[in-house]
Design a protein around this nucleic acid. Structure first.
Lengths: 353, 353
DNA sequence: CTGAAAGCGCTAACAT
DNA sequence: ATGTTAGCGCTTTCAG
């Protein structure tokens, strides 16, 4: 006599009815084994299996208990991009570690869909998470509003800095200043800048130093300001469309091979990331420029084989998870900035006389 | 007269009461603007803002509606590892694209916590997702049971192949066979294998060809079988602990520099991934072996500059998302295996006479 | 165009 | 050791 198939959905109640106990007991069988006899528990679990009961529904449980057991990472690009940027990957690795430490899972939420169309607001509004980490969004990005409206704990990484929202990152301006001081200290007088995108509308272009505009990304803004604190406001600036090696090369080519009107070629380039710096190196090679003989290059993030600003994005990822989780529990954490250090390397030297 | 602070939680009901309409109308304001007058809607939204209402609670909504708008990726390692393996990254990138296309978000669920302790079962049981993609788990891994018990759509990638569960991957055995035939066709007779871990208990070791054991990972098993179909069952096999370059080097060193009792050095090495193959190249360099003069190397996955089996993990990631999403909607998709091709490259050549 | 009522599936007090 | 009860916060027929 096979049990006749029940087409309706099997819930905890179904199991309760079948076993002949109350729903609460079934719930206890799953959540508090010590609250019932081992024998009954066995019987319940067996029946559940027979019935094809999938276990307590996570959404219902979450509604009842109030915690999702998951945090989200908000990302201003297409989701896929997160897997293309080494910096983002290092950060995610750290975030993942921190998340795992809390036995939570990590949800990835992207602002742009696969076709590059905006649309993350719904995703943000519907994400079932206990808190959100924001990965470098431009000031007043719509997603930010959506995120704040959720009324759940937030942490921003890189930017923007929001009132009452823990921030993780370094003092980018000071770090950029150190990078610039390094090359100026070596004797360089013609220094140019390879900058991150200023805003979400990505476009490779040279900025008029006289009217560079205000970058909407905090990181871009601070690093730019730091460089200029040292090299002056008339230093050439090339903005890239994307933080990758190819764009670094392109920007460097523009800066180095530049149109005739530029007085003389820069002897040093300050890049806002190591990726970009590697692109600069590619360009130098193509132009037959010796590094550091003809051109000094400073990167940012800590890649080996480069003069660069060392920071640990990995560590910062962990920190984000930690602070967010603390906030989830209603605790707050010290809001110190993360550490950085300038590390001179083989890509910088004195300019040729 | 400032509105007095309400310490209790603001819900849709609170807003309804404040505005003086029914909860249904508030719900409509958020979900079906066309169902009420623009004026009323405005008033509702404004009041909600004043009250600090965060919008409809996603968990409650999900409970009511039945869809989570999110899919999960199940991962048998520590979460961080996903960001270290280029193959995994390519796959994730594809998966992310596919997910975005559905306007869903992606949840990452790891079997091992940050300390390497097992514990993903709870995460699987509690994940609020519409479906799960399994990234290469060993046969009968506990997480697999947990995943199946959820009773939501599943797709496995790489393995294992489960009854009634869509599978995405290639014919690894045939592909491995092609790789082996390539070197044998070039004249190699002493061929050794650099193999993925056989099971979740990771340990670098040489396998006794006579009693190699049965790999618990389908991919390992199939590729191994494919290689052996061609080079014979007595070919030396070195198992790595982790799929990375350093381990590839280590395994190659063991195989090439091997203890005195081995008759003669292999002239060709078959590696189960490009990462491992690059490690083999490192080892060859250290031993002063010319590639392909002294040693031929075949990788797996399609890296340039290598003789390798080309496949698109990226494409397979997209496919997983697509199939899972189809399953979520109750549709099924054709279950063809993905494409692969052997691409001879500069890392293989005829053996020196 | 708006309201009333009935749950979605579960858990936590509080009984017994 | 088990049962009763009362929601968690929302959406959705179905009436008006």
């Amino acid at each position: 006599m096979a049990p006749e198939p029940k087409p309706e959905k099997v819930t905890l109640k179904t199991v309760a009815r079948t076993v002949g106990v109350s729903p609460a007991t079934i719930s206890n069988a799953y959540n508090r084994p010590e609250k019932l006899s081992a024998a009954l528990r066995e019987r319940i679990l067996a029946t559940a299996r027979e019935l094809g009961y999938a276990g307590p529904d996570p959404a219902a449980r979450r509604l009842r208990r109030g915690r999702a057991g998951s945090i989200g990472l908000l990302f201003g690009e297409q989701l896929a991009y997160v897997f293309e940027d080494p910096g983002a990957i290092a950060f995610l690795r750290g975030l993942a570690e921190g998340t795992a430490r809390l036995n939570a899972s990590l949800q990835l939420i992207a602002a742009l869909d696969a076709d590059g169309a905006e649309g993350g607001e719904d995703l943000v509004a519907n994400a079932i998470v206990d808190g959100l980490v924001v990965w470098s969004l431009p000031d007043r990005h719509p997603l930010l509003r959506a995120a704040r409206e959720r009324g759940i704990p937030l942490v921003t990484h890189g930017g923007p800095r929001l009132d009452g929202v823990p921030f993780v990152g370094i003092d980018d301006r000071a770090a950029a200043r150190a990078a610039a001081e390094h090359v100026v200290g070596l004797g360089h007088r013609r220094v140019a800048i390879v900058a991150f995108p200023f805003g979400p509308r990505r476009e490779a272009r040279e900025r008029d130093p006289a009217r560079p505009g205000r970058p909407a990304y905090r990181v871009t803004r601070e690093r730019l300001a730091g460089y200029r604190d040292v090299v002056g406001a008339k230093a050439p600036v090339a903005e890239v469309a994307v933080n990758d090696r190819a764009e670094g090369r392109r920007a460097a080519l523009a800066l180095l091979a530049g149109e005739g009107r530029r007085r003389r070629r820069p002897t040093a380039l300050l890049a806002m990331s190591d990726e970009l710096a590697f692109g600069v190196l590619d360009a130098a090679r193509e132009l037959g420029l010796d590094v550091p003989g003809d051109l000094s290059v400073v990167g940012f993030d800590g890649a080996p084989a480069l003069s660069t600003v060392v920071q640990s994005l990995h560590e910062q990822g962990r920190l984000c998870a930690q602070r967010l989780i603390a906030a989830t529990h209603g605790r707050s954490t010290p809001g110190d900035l993360a550490a950085w250090a300038l590390r001179p390397g083989p890509s910088t030297g004195p300019p040729r006389p």
